[in-house]
Write a protein that binds this DNA or RNA. Structure first.
Lengths: 214, 214, 214, 214
DNA sequence: GATTAAGCGAGACGGTACGTCCGGTCTTTTT
DNA sequence: AAAAAGACCGGACGTACCGTCTCGCTTAATC
């Protein structure tokens, strides 16, 4: 006996770096249940009172299954939102009919409608709040969500500028921010209704400042 | 909310509502310590990890002293901010030199500078987050803070319109939101630097869309 | 006034040494409920499946109230046992009628009866098991429980030796262990019934080896 | 023996009893690694903190391989102990040189020495604790371990009685318990050192009470 | 030699309990 | 009566293991 166990600690079983789990073994049913439960619950109680335990219970899942795959409840929501609520991944470009004003009005009207749907609004607000608290998450959020992203606006505006519909020296990023910023602020800080009058007026006023002189 | 029924009813209570404390007996030293500790701590750990217990401990104060006078940690921060960080009470109107563009540029430059100071930025971000989660608080926040309010912009823009510097039919509220919304979004979602180039370009582009036609 | 506690770093709030709670502020009702629930539960499910959470739930108490005052579930049981089941604190000396054999027979019979009562047996076994796993607890256990202590036997045997009823050179501790050891082993390892025949025979055989020669 | 899913079971077994594994296909290397790891670990962390997961990890084995072959961690330890630490299977009878006192002294001295070896003591204590919590395991333990069993003492004492060295009416089981009980108690409850002085005195005092009168 | 059915290493899974942290209430003592 | 202190009930945290359950992969035994 005695048989000492090889004195150099194998992996020591200590609290060392945890190996990442194997995604190929992931249970798709559990994943879907978690994402679904997250969206339900954030709509029912809001982000501040959303708990991992409640998600696990609603999804019929062990807490560890959540902690194994997501670093935070915000990350769960982000997945839930991009999967079930937002656009799956591809950037939904703004259509280009040649009429910039019409195109932007259509997009902002659609966006306003989306933000009036509580099933969309609650998780989106949760993610905006989480992003405001965590820069890393904010980047993830922007990278994966089309609605909040300004890149699609920049693309459309660039096409318009190249077609001579906007001033040559227009700052495309600033222009895009002028279209989304007032909308975002009005929504997040609840400064007023998100109706079509608002979005139409916004588009028109912004474009009025960007058109070629003449 | 939740509002437990309080089993031992005082004999003639009527509504059973807790009698409010007498403000005249309030300890000013404790109040100041609590507000100061809140600002310190929100700068150190952020809003999500700010706790009432930590504020009480840092302030050398009993927890009950906080619960007696404020309904939530956001309310504490709001008091702390208006007292120590923001303008104490008077609305700081935007100056009117006659040159609208110059006045707005100056104000937005100053605001950008403020938001670059971490001692200002941390509690303000905390309040924005808390307001995004709670509509009541959001109203309080807007009512009491000058910097985030748009009324001052509306006032200055109205003067410019009345002086014929803007179109007759300008939507003053929308115009104000176009000045503050891109700024707010860029700041809260960390979409870019808040420098003078940005604010100047913002002012110029917005005003370009508002000027009287040809 | 009232000496502020040095504004920088109060107690650091770090994970440092936790200050001990103030026993004078302890809630006696909670304490009694916890001890009672422990005894109930250990009788129902045994020591291995006894959990702090179940004790807290049964007692209608927060878990922290247990962790605040006891370091382990074994320590809770020890308090519970000495308060409700065992002798409150004073060492219950073995009576001295002059007849050593009769006195020991009476004590061991009484002890056997006690160990036949499940309400006594379950927590006592739990403590014996806990003590076997933790030397510190074992010492506490021995120091505070009369039934398992051998000091009372030594005291009675010394009186008998001084009265000339035992050999001059008798090893009192060994003699006491010979009275309690077989009993303890038979009980803990369930090697046989703890009846009066057993205890009487044990006393007689031990004393047969200890009497003065002649 | 194509072994369809258990012929004598109705087709819709559902929760049916799990078919026992085939011992002939067992991996001897895994078995040895598990038993070795168990002994190592119980020595390092004690019984209470010994986990199946740690055994599997240390042994480089899947958890299921343990659950397939053993019903509990105590059962693993029991195998580990009888294989590596204790006597493999044959009952090691107490030698009979004709001198009962000398034979018992030798056996108890050897036993004391064994219990002073941590590599032996740790798993033995673990098994004693497990046995104290579970009567079934206790029986298994007694049936398979020579050192802790009292049958060998009874056998040796019977021979002595038949040779006229003990009283005719001696209770052999009680006598055996008087030899092992004090030893067991002193060891398990850590009441004192297990040295040769103790075991010699124990043997002598016990035998003093058992010898024929006159 | 191909098939097939374990046993096996690995580890994800639904759960339970852990011990800690904090929310909000209550009580005691001091100012 | 307010305040400092902090005990209290409750509930969520993130972690550790439980015992079960797939996954390939390897290894025998049967075809």
């Amino acid at each position: 006996m005695s048989q000492r166990p090889d004195p150099d600690q194998p992996p020591a079983s200590g609290t060392g770096a945890r190996r990442p789990p194997d995604p190929s073994r992931r249970n798709a049913r559990s994943r879907a249940a978690i994402l679904g439960a997250s969206l339900q619950l954030v709509g029912e109680v809001g982000y501040a009172r959303l708990t991992i335990e409640a998600i696990a219970a609603r999804a019929g899942v062990g807490k560890q299954t959540i902690y194994r795959w997501w670093p935070s409840k915000a990350a769960v929501l982000l997945d839930a939102f991009t999967e079930n609520g937002g656009e799956p991944g591809a950037e939904p470009a703004i259509p280009d009919t040649g009429d910039l004003a019409a195109d932007l009005r259509a997009v902002l009207r659609a966006t306003a409608d989306e933000f009036s749907d509580p099933a969309f609004e609650a998780p989106y607000r949760a993610l905006a709040i989480a992003g405001a608290q965590d820069a890393d998450l904010s980047r993830e959020f922007d990278a994966r969500l089309a609605g909040g992203g300004i890149e699609v606006y920049i693309t459309r505006l660039r096409a318009a500028r190249d077609a001579g519909q906007l001033r040559e020296d227009v700052d495309l990023r600033l222009a895009a921010e002028m279209l989304t910023g007032p909308f975002f602020q009005r929504w997040l800080a609840r400064r007023g209704p998100l109706d079509h009058d608002f979005t139409d007026a916004l588009v028109d006023t912004v474009l009025a400042g960007l058109r070629p002189r003449g």
